[in-house]
Amino acid sequence: MLEASGIDAFYGQAHILHGVGLSVGRGEVLALLGRNGAGKSTTMKSIIGLVRPAAGSVRLDGAELAGLPPHEIARAGIGYVPEERRVFTELTVMENLSVGLQPARDSTPTWTPERLFELFPNLAEMRDRQGGRMSGGEQQMLTIARTLMGNPRVILLDEPSEGLAPVIVDQMARTVQELKRDGLTVLLSEQNLHFASAVADRATIIEKGIIRYSGTMAALAADEEARAAYLTV
C-alpha cells in the first residue's frame, strides 16, 4: 500500500538517509525500529514531505508522492503524527480537531469528533480545554485524533510511546490495535521494543540512515543477534 524506496535525505550538508526503503501492506502495522538518531523521524518526514527527499520514491497505491508539498501528500491519504506532538497549544481540543478536518474518502472509514471521543474517552471530557493545558498523554491522544480527522489511509506514528507513563503506553497500544482492527494501515517508529511487539506485524530496523533488517515481529523476537546489533544500547 505504502512503498518507499531508495530515499536519500539531507539536513543542509549532512547526509542522513541512504537509500531507505520500506513497504507497508494494507491493514498492516509496520514498526520502524532503531536507536536514537538512527533516522526514524527523518524517514517519516521524508514520506510526508516535510523533508524533501533528494532521491527516491514514495508511492501510495502506486501513485508517486515524492517531491509534492506536505499538504498534497496529506490529502493523498497519509496522516502524520509527529514525535514532538506539535499540538496547537492556544487552540481548544475541538479546534485542534477541526484543523485536521479533510473531506471524507470512499476507501476509509470517516472520522468525526464523536467517533474519536469513543476511541479516546479522556478527550471527550475536555473538549474546550486548550492544547497547552493538557498532560503529555492527553496531548499524544489529541495529535492522533487530529490526524485521524483527515481520514487517512495510512498513518505515520512517530514514537507514540515516548515519554509516557506505563499505564498510558498500554492504553496507546490498545488504541493502535483498535485502529488496525478498523482497517487502518500504520507505520510506527519505536525504540520501545515491548510496545512494538505488542502492536506490530512486521519490523524494519534502521541504523545510521541505512535499513539493516526486515522481517516479521516474531522473527525478530527470535533473532537475538539482530536485536543486539541494532537495538539494545
Partner: peptide, 24 residues
C-alpha cells in the same frame, strides 16, 4: 470560523498545519 482557527494554528506552527493537509 474555521478559517480563523486555521490562521491561529498556522500562527503557532504553519508547517504542521501543512502536514495536516491545509494549503498554506
Amino acid at each position: 470560523t474555521r478559517w480563523g482557527t486555521l490562521v491561529r494554528a498556522a500562527t503557532q506552527d504553519r508547517e504542521m498545519v501543512g502536514a495536516l493537509g491545509v494549503n498554506q
